[in-house]
């Protein structure tokens, strides 16, 4: 992992067209400004982790549950 030190208002450039800038630092919280092309998706890491966890739980679908869902067909 590349580790860089940056001060407020300093940034880093990643590849073509992605800039990450430190907008402010306060109470142990860093505000980052990110400029990137539209096709680059940017998400908080914990959102990804949460969805991965949910997918894993959802993958426990089984035939018993299919039977239970069949009972709901009239809904």
């Amino acid at each position: 992992m590349l580790i860089l030190s940056r001060k407020e208002n300093e940034g880093i450039v990643i590849g073509d067209g992605i800039t990450v800038r430190v907008m402010g630092i306060e109470d142990g919280r860093v505000r980052l400004g990110i400029e990137a092309p539209r096709e680059v998706s940017i998400h908080r890491e914990e959102i990804f982790a949460e969805i991965k966890k949910e997918n894993m739980q959802a993958a426990k679908a089984n035939s018993e549950m299919a039977d239970a869902l069949a009972l709901l067909k009239k809904l």
């Binding site: 991965k52 966890k53 997918n55 894993m56 993958a59 709901l72 067909k73």
Partner: peptide, 24 residues
């Protein structure tokens, strides 16, 4: 793939029998 399951890339969408709300 799906998040956390990036290695699995091919899926089929299958209707559950007698059931028009839930798919697999």
């Amino acid at each position: 793939g799906l998040l956390g399951l990036e290695d699995y890339k091919k899926y089929a969408l299958i209707a559950l029998p007698d059931n028009d709300k839930f798919l697999c």
